[in-house]
Every structure is written in C-alpha cells, then in structure tokens.
Simulated scan of single mutants.
Amino acid sequence: MTENKTTSSLHYDSLVVQGAPARQNEYGAIMPPIFLSTTYRFEDLDHQGTYEYVRTQNPTREKAERLIARLEDARYAFGFSSGMAALATIFEHFKPGDHIISSANIYGGTYRFFSDLFTKNQIAYNFKQDLNALTDADFKENTRAVYIETPSNPTLRVTDIAKVVALAHRHHALVICDNTFMTSYLQRPLALGADIVAYSATKYFGGHADLCAGFIALNDPSLAEEFYFFQNTLGATLSPFDSYTLIRGTKTLALRLDRQQENAKAVIAALQNDPAIDEVYFPGSSNAVEHEIQARQARGNGSVISFRVTEEVDLKRFFNQLQMIDLAVSLGGVESIICRPATSTHEPYPQAEREKLGVDNQLVRFAVGIENKADIIADLQQALARSRS
C-alpha cells in the first residue's frame, strides 16, 4: 500500500498529464514502463525486495494508483479489475447485522449486489427514492453507511453530498460515493466530506473503450489498510497493462470531457425541440432544488443524458436507423454510445421497481462522445424522424 504524500498547485488539466510524473520513471522514460513480471527475486532467504508478487504489488499499478490519488487529492487509491470489483471490496467492510442506506436509483449491477449478495450475507439495506429527503429518522443503531450515486444512473437525479455527509457522520456512518459520471474533474466527493469515492474507471478515466478498471480513493489510514488487505486477498487487481493504458487515457480526460460537455449541451437543446421527445434528463433538470445542488457541488454536468421518446416512436427501428451512433452499454469513451436501460444496464431491477424510478421501455440513455456535434444531432434527428409511426 502506497500513501500519496504529494499535493500539487497544478490545474487539473495539467495534473492529468503530469500526475504520473515522468521524472519518477525509470531511465527517464516519459511514459511509465509496463512491468509484466508476475514474481520478483528475493534479496536472500530472509529478505524479499520491494516487490514480491504481481497481485500484491506492481510498479505500474502503483503509478496508476498514485495518479488517481493525486487527482482526487486523496491519501490512498487502489486499482481493481473493474468498477464492480472496487465496490465489492468496499462492501467487504460490512458484516452480518449491519444496515446500509442507498439511493433507489443506482446502476443495475450495484442493485444486484444489494438485492442478492447483501441479502445472502445478512446485511440489511433500505433504498430511498430521494436521498435529499434523508433525515435522522432514517438511521438505525446498526446503520453503517450511506451509498450515493450522483448524478444517478440513468435518470441523472442529483444528491446533496454535503447534506448526506452531515447526517451520516452524526450517526457514525460512512458515506460512499460513486463518482463515475462526474470524475474528480467535475466533482470532488472527498472534499465535500465523503469517506470513500468509487469509480468505474473503465469509463472517463480510460476514455477509449479499451480497458476495464475500477478505483477506490480515500483518506482514512485504517480503512486503507483494510482495503489493501481485501485487494490482495480477493485478488481482483488492475493488471499492469491496463494500469499503463489507464495512465495514457487519463492524460486527455479534461480535453475529452470539455468537448463532450459542449456536445451534450447542443444535443440537449436539439432534443428539447424535437416532437419525438417527451422529456430530456440531465443533472439538475428534475427540479430547481437539484439544479442548485448540482451548480454548487459540481463544475459541470458531464456528458451522459437520457431522454424519453413519445409512444409513437418505435425504439427498435430508432436504434436500427442510427448511422454513426452505436447501440451499446457503457459510457465515457470518445465514441457516442446509446442504450435502453430497461433492457440492459437496469435489467436486474424488477419491472415494477424500474418503472417507479422512471426507467421504462421508452427511456433512452445517451453517452455523448467527442464527434462533431452537428453530426451527432443529425444522426439522432434522422433516426427519430424515420422511427415515428
């Protein structure tokens, strides 16, 4: 486990480039070497070297972990083979009899973890429709954490992180925040008081749909020791090659997100004027309260939006008519990607629960890429026009 002891005065868009300092690389290499060795020679029978085995430590993974820690302004960061592996490691902290509060509107894979694995492990949980309405009465003696995903997936509802933190800490509960949609470029949960931030780094940090990765960042040393033990014991660590790929991809994070946000604003405006669209969802769009929260705790809205098409739109035909935009899950890459959450990312939810959250068969999630915004809009508009009955 490596502690980040470096603070930086660099702006974030410089830090993503310089955050894994070339001056610390072997032989003066500008890009870090990839250490693929699975095992390392002991100095002698009684002394191992700095590195022993790839699952326990790896020089390339440590560089990626230091980079994420610096971007989060965190003391510790841990790299995993997926975002779900990162969350599973966090959830290992909880024991039978514990209780967790979570937003009802979360990624389907996380919902599956709650509904299947927490139940099996006798960990109680409550889903709350709106964490902004959280009160002291929601906490029990055995409440150990509040889990936040903000903006939520896929309806982009916004939760006031600082408010939840104040309530949770009053009841000695941790606050865990999935910050995948925002990244630390746009939102800093740790600075707002959250105890643990989690990422599917497959998305914006990687940025090119060519790696699977997850991260945990935090400041508490005792929790960090625990997570390091779980990381090593469970073994779902980030590979050396993916660690290198993540460092490379992260260098363009600020540039990509700036372009993607610019494109997303243009797409929102176009869709809001399209007769085939009932409603467009983005962070802060649901109500004035959430709009104010998003403006206060984040420096942008990201580039994931959702929209509900009218009943006269045949969604199967709509997806088939798209010429440039791909029908696929995931988000955060340079390509524009579109999906129907009800039958993909949120399929683990029972239908009644999905519909209560507004995730029905007419809802579409769109991860806006870096292509020319006119081309993105034109592709959406022609497909919508051709799919209306």
Rank of each mutant, 00 (worst) to 15 (best):
T180P: 01
L45S: 12
T345R: 11
A378K: 05
I196Y: 01
F114N: 10
N105D: 14
D46V: 06
N105V: 09
D274A: 13
P283A: 11
Q321G: 11
A133E: 12
D138F: 13
V17H: 07
L218F: 04
M31N: 14
E92R: 15
R340Y: 03
F366E: 04
Q187G: 05
I100T: 02
A236D: 05
A198W: 05
S81K: 02
D44N: 14
S286C: 12
A295I: 07
L10K: 10
K251I: 13
S81T: 07
F205T: 04
L45Y: 13
D44K: 11
L117A: 13
F215T: 03
D314W: 06
G97Q: 10
G83Y: 05
K63H: 09
I30N: 03
L71C: 04
L67H: 03
I216G: 00
N142S: 15
T7D: 15
V16E: 05
E279M: 10
A29L: 12
T119Y: 13
N179T: 00
T7V: 09
F181G: 03
L327A: 11
A162D: 08
P275G: 03
F139N: 08
G300W: 00
Y281H: 15
K163Y: 09
L211P: 00
Q24W: 08
V304S: 11
A201W: 00
V16K: 10
V17M: 07
T110M: 07
D326K: 13
T202G: 06
F114D: 12
Q260L: 06
G49I: 05
E65G: 05
A217I: 02
M324Q: 15
K265V: 11
S81R: 00
V146Q: 02
P341F: 15
V54Y: 07
S200H: 09
R299G: 11
A254H: 06
F181S: 04
V16A: 09
Q362S: 14
K95T: 05
Q129S: 10
V304L: 15
D274T: 14
D314R: 02
P21E: 03
V329D: 13
T143F: 06
A298F: 10
I176H: 02
Y204S: 02
D278M: 09
Q122Y: 07
E353S: 05
S306G: 15
N232R: 07
P283K: 08
E355D: 14
